[in-house]
Nucleic acid binder design. Structure first.
Lengths: 95, 95
DNA sequence: ATCGAATGTAACCTATAACGTATCAGGTGT
DNA sequence: ACACCTGATACGTTATAGGTTACATTCGAT
């Protein structure tokens, strides 16, 4: 089931990973092996979590890469579903 | 759990949707509202399923857009996980 | 054997997105 | 005052989804 208005994964990352550990963006970016800008953009909802970034997060925070990328998918899909009615698609199969 | 070597979503689309309905690529593309090239690229594993395409598929084949995009995520993640060991990431949290 | 349909794909274009370095302004803490 | 962190730029590169157009192949029907 599609979650209702899922949060941007960047928020989750900030609240559940960085803040509890008292990590600065600069230090977290260094540990993740990405630029400060890249991490900052994610934390502030300017860019999404790429597959590679999901793997980086899974290493740094001892989580599953799947959970990160799934969160991103849910978010992206929620945005795309907003325009469902505008898409010119003909139904090919009816149950 | 991450699936082992997940198939490209294009294969699934071809085998589970186009072939059972006897649809040509040309006709399916028209119904989906995309160019023949775009659909062909997906079916042959040359491009992935975008969030918007997932919504189109959900309309045309009466499925959930989530299932399509999740398949794509699983596939992308499987590719990204192949390079896990090459990523320069420091562990920040240990259970 | 020839015609038309279907397919894959190449070339060329656009738009978007992730990522990098470098820089600057504003805030915070020592 | 000074150092540090942050957010926001501007400037690149690279990759990818999508479009149109055009071409070569294959395959079925005439």
């Amino acid at each position: 089931m599609l979650m209702h208005n899922p949060p941007h994964p960047g928020e989750v990352l900030k609240e559940l990973c960085l803040e509890p550990l008292g990590l600065t963006v600069t230090d977290a970016a260094k540990s993740l092996g990405v630029s400060r800008k890249t991490l900052s953009a994610i934390l502030n909802g300017k860019s999404g979590i790429s597959p590679e970034m999901a793997v980086r997060l899974s290493i740094a925070f001892n989580t599953s890469s799947e959970s990160w990328l799934n969160q991103q998918s849910q978010y992206d899909l929620w945005q795309a579903e907003k325009h469902r009615k505008e898409l010119q698609v003909k139904q090919l199969f009816v149950a």
